[in-house]
Simulated assay, not measured.
Amino acid sequence: MTTHNAAPQRRPDHPTWWRIPLVASALGLPVLALEYSAIRAQAGMGQYGAALYWALALFAAAWAVPHRRTFRTFRILAGGAALAITLLPVTLLLILGVMLAE
């Protein structure tokens, strides 16, 4: 007589789930902290403050998603979007500086 376990089996964790959030956080969080301190020094967050909070929330979401392989795409999108939101103002300032230097 054989018995079958009726309980659903939990899928194993993705072994390298932490790489994408780590790379996005290592590149983006120092820049985000600098942007936040520069904005706070100018007496208010304004409309740009919402973008900083969105970027921080997306960094947190990239880390907080369950560690299964099915969430890999969401983890990539959240980390990439957070990094893009963080680096876009710095990139635009660098492009503006290059254009004005000539």
Rank of each mutant, 00 (worst) to 15 (best):
Leu77Ser: 11
Leu92Glu: 08
Ala55Trp: 01
Leu77Arg: 08
Phe59His: 07
Leu27Cys: 14
Ala101Gly: 14
Thr3Val: 09
Leu34Glu: 02
His4Leu: 10
Phe59Tyr: 14
Ala81Ile: 13
Arg72Phe: 09
Gln47Asn: 03
Ala57Val: 10
Thr73Ser: 14
His67Thr: 07
Leu22Lys: 01
Asn5Glu: 07
Met1Asp: 15
Ala51Tyr: 03
Ala101Thr: 15
Gly46Glu: 03
Leu93Trp: 13
Gln47Thr: 05
Leu56Gly: 09
Ala6Phe: 05
Ala55Ser: 12
Ala7Gln: 15
Gln9Glu: 15
Leu100Ala: 12
Pro89Cys: 10
Gln47Arg: 02
Met1Gly: 15
Leu87Gly: 01
Thr86Trp: 05
Ala26Asn: 05
Ile85Arg: 00
Leu93Lys: 12
Trp18Ala: 15
Tyr36Arg: 02
Tyr36Phe: 10
Gly44Met: 00
Arg10Lys: 06
Met99Asp: 06
Ala78Ile: 00
Leu56Tyr: 07
Ala24Pro: 00
Leu93Glu: 13
Thr3Glu: 12
Leu32Ala: 12
Thr3Leu: 11
Pro21Met: 03
Ala41Phe: 07
Gln47Pro: 00
Phe74Glu: 02
Gly28Trp: 01
Arg19Ile: 13
Val31Met: 13
Thr3Phe: 10
Ile39Gln: 04
Trp54His: 02
Met99Ser: 03
Met99Asn: 04
Trp18Leu: 13
Val23Glu: 06
Thr3Trp: 07
Ile39His: 02
Leu93Cys: 10
Phe74Pro: 00
Ala82Leu: 05
Leu58Ala: 03
Leu27Gln: 05
Leu94Arg: 12
Leu93Ile: 10
Trp17Tyr: 05
Leu93His: 13
Ala84Arg: 12
Arg19Lys: 12
Ser37Met: 10
Gly80Tyr: 02
Thr86Glu: 08
Met1Asn: 14
Ala82Val: 03
Val23His: 06
Phe74Ala: 12
Trp18Asp: 14
Asp13Met: 07
Gly97Asn: 13
Ala64Val: 05
His14Glu: 11
Ala62Cys: 00
Tyr53Gln: 15
Leu94Gly: 09
Ala62Trp: 00
Ala26Trp: 09
Pro21His: 03
Arg10Leu: 04
Leu96Lys: 11
Ala61Tyr: 08
Ala84Val: 15
Leu34Met: 08
Leu100Phe: 11
Ala50His: 12
Arg72Ser: 08
Ala41Lys: 03
Met45Thr: 04
Trp54Gln: 05
Val90Pro: 08
Gly44Val: 01
Leu92Ala: 13
Ala62Leu: 00
Gly49Trp: 00
Tyr48Ile: 01
Leu22Ser: 14
Pro8Lys: 07
Ile76His: 15
Ile76Thr: 10
Ala62His: 00
Val90Cys: 14
Ala60Val: 13
Arg40Leu: 13
Leu87Phe: 14
Ser37Thr: 13
His4Pro: 01
Tyr48Gln: 05
Thr91Ser: 11
Leu92Cys: 10
Ala64Phe: 09
Pro89Arg: 06
Val31His: 01
Arg68Gln: 10
Pro89Tyr: 04
Ala57Glu: 07
Ile95Trp: 10
Ala64Ser: 11
Tyr36Gln: 02
Ala26His: 02
Tyr36Gly: 06
Ala6Cys: 04
Met1Glu: 15
Trp17Leu: 00
Leu87Tyr: 11
Pro15Ala: 04
Ala6Arg: 04
Leu27Met: 15
Arg40Val: 10
Ser25Lys: 09
Asn5Val: 02
Thr70Leu: 08
Val90His: 14
Gly80Pro: 02
Ala101Asn: 15
Arg19Glu: 06
Trp54Thr: 06
Gly97Glu: 09
Tyr48Asn: 03
